[in-house]
Simulated assay, not measured.
Amino acid sequence: MKLKLALATVCVLGASGLAHAQDPNLARNLAATCANCHGTNGKSVGGMDSLAGEPRDKLMQKLMDFRSGEKPASIMHQIAKGYTDEQLGLIVDYFAAQK
């Protein structure tokens, strides 16, 4: 019985990872959550930084600094903690590719 449960768990976890890898819009969909503050496709029209076209390493470092609390923020520290490293990588890759 325990073996069946372990096998089922491995299959579910493997399938969920495969589903993420097969979604061609996952990066765009994750990045869309940033639009309220940073503009559509990361092109800000207001007081927030634009993310479009910024270097990947710079964006990732900012997110890691928000997540760790090294960079103070009103909300970004909470948002950054809500994503896995893989998801943050997809988001910064998406914004870095925008022109």
Rank of each mutant, 00 (worst) to 15 (best):
N41Y: 13
G89R: 01
N25P: 04
A97L: 15
A52C: 10
A80M: 06
E54F: 04
N29Q: 15
G89N: 07
L5R: 11
L3H: 07
S16N: 14
S16P: 12
N36F: 12
T40Y: 05
G47L: 03
L7W: 11
E54D: 03
M60P: 00
R28Q: 11
L30C: 06
I91F: 02
G17I: 05
R56D: 09
H20D: 10
L26N: 07
M64Q: 04
N25K: 14
N36A: 13
Q61K: 13
V92Y: 02
A8V: 14
Y94V: 05
A6V: 15
L7G: 08
G39I: 06
I91L: 06
R56K: 07
L88K: 01
I75T: 05
C37R: 03
G47V: 03
G82F: 03
L63N: 07
M60H: 01
K81S: 15
A31T: 12
N29E: 14
A31C: 13
A80Y: 04
A15H: 06
L90S: 09
K81P: 09
Y83K: 00
E70V: 07
V12I: 15
T33Q: 13
P72L: 03
N29F: 11
G14Y: 12
R28M: 10
A35F: 13
L90R: 10
M76F: 10
P72E: 09
D93N: 06
L51V: 01
F95P: 02
M60R: 02
V45I: 15
Q61V: 10
L88D: 03
S50E: 07
L90A: 12
A96T: 05
L88E: 03
F66P: 04
S68R: 02
K4H: 11
P55Y: 03
M76Q: 13
Q87M: 05
L18I: 10
T33K: 08
L30E: 02
D65L: 11
G53Y: 04
L26W: 05
P24W: 11
E86T: 12
L26K: 08
G14M: 14
Y94Q: 04
M48W: 07
G39K: 00
C37Y: 02
C34D: 01
L63P: 00
K4R: 11
I75S: 06
A19D: 06
D85S: 05
G89F: 02
Q78M: 08
L3E: 15
G46Q: 09
T9I: 14
A21C: 06
S74T: 09
E86R: 10
V12T: 15
L63V: 07
P55C: 04
G39N: 01
H20K: 07
G47A: 10
D57A: 05
L13D: 13
A35P: 09
I75P: 02
G14N: 14
Y94P: 07
A21G: 08
L63K: 03
D57G: 00
A31W: 09
A80C: 06
A6T: 14
M1F: 13
H77N: 09
Q87H: 08
K99G: 14
D85F: 05
L18Q: 11
L18G: 09
P24A: 09
